[in-house]
Design a protein around this nucleic acid. Structure first.
Lengths: 116, 116
DNA sequence: AAAATATACCTTGACAGCCGAAGTATATTG
DNA sequence: CAATATACTTCGGCTGTCAAGGTATATTTT
């Protein structure tokens, strides 16, 4: 993991929801997907991952059911709720805003101040 | 303040250093600058600000001296050190990387996985 | 002259998210 | 049969943020 976790913090929920926007899935698989999509640069630690699911569940952004695997360990399948979808939209908008804002604050060329 | 602080967390030190890259300054003024540059969307709370200075100082990224104001409250002037400049470069690079990474993970169009 | 506001810094305690570490359980591979 | 992979869970510590309070000085308002 090469990315400082404090840079990711506050984005984990959004990243998980993004996976669930594609298809429902379970914790372990979601984490693997994130790992491979990031080219191994980033993984959620298990405690972080499952903590995030608890949060998302409490917020009503995801719902889950236990898979009925005939083989292997049982899986907790999550799917995103309508509320979760709406929230995901807002999260990504906020995230893009925050990015632009930070960008404007760390860029060293002399620019004008904003006024809105 | 309209930006979730968890999205900013991990960027505050970088944002402060960015200000000091332009010119040396003191806490109160730096915070005002950040406020106006962000169009009031973002301000560091005082406890956060002064906590950050302590961190930056301990890390050797900034040094300070007491101003000799003849009038008004005394000011603690900070300037960025060589070590701080180097670190700022790395921070911004890491930040841009993290941005691209998150972007790739939350964008919903079907893209290929990275492999590096 | 007293009160309010602005400047400028400092500290404490609570809280939330991240993570290392350890544990449970099942299935596969060497 | 030991090691590895899958899959989820919990605990305790750490760190950054913030609300709330404080100190001190100068200016502006009433």
């Amino acid at each position: 993991m090469s990315i400082a976790s404090d840079l990711i913090r506050g984005s984990t929920d959004m990243i998980i929801l993004a996976q669930l926007m594609r298809n429902e899935s379970y914790g372990y698989e979601i984490n693997k997907k994130i790992q491979q999509k990031s080219g191994k640069q980033f993984e959620l630690k298990e405690a972080t991952l499952y903590g995030a699911f608890r949060r998302l569940e409490e917020a009503g952004y995801v719902s889950f059911y236990w898979g009925d695997e005939q083989t292997g360990a049982r899986r907790r399948y999550y799917s995103i709720t309508e509320k979760g979808r709406e929230s995901f939209q807002i999260m990504t908008e906020d995230w893009h805003k925050a990015c632009r804002l930070i960008e404007s604050m760390i860029s060293l060329d002399e620019e004008e101040n904003r006024d809105e």
